[in-house]
Design a protein around this nucleic acid. Sequence first.
DNA 1: TCAGTGACTGACC
DNA 2: GGGTCAGCCACTG
Length: 114
Amino acid sequence: MMDEEKNFFEKVYEIAAQIPFGRVTSYGAIARYLGAARSARMVGWAMNGAGNMEEVPAHRVVNKAGILTGKHHFDGTSLMQQLLENEGVKVVDNQIIDLEKHFWDPAKELTSHR
DNA sequence: TCAGTGACTGACC
DNA sequence: GGGTCAGCCACTG
């Protein structure tokens, strides 16, 4: 009711900022939590602006396949991979290993209200 | 102003 | 089982 007044982007930032250390999530998971599962692209676009926000670890957000699709948008080339590996997430060929083990579902962890 | 692109996903064939 | 198509919304040219 009240949070819904927030902008879509702001919600994405808030959720992304709550991703715990060593965990990752997908654009669709965030989008679905916001009630816009079909607008996963907007989540990625929001991450584009979040890339400059240290509070928003965009490197912890990957596609559903666990592939670092947005690594190209980072300052470096393997920066995104380095950050994930630094958190204990194994990444090979721009893809996260054991994604299910590192996956963090906002709708499941933030199961406070729909 | 219109049209195309994009850090995705799910459904269809 | 694997590839293709459409949808979503915002920004750029």
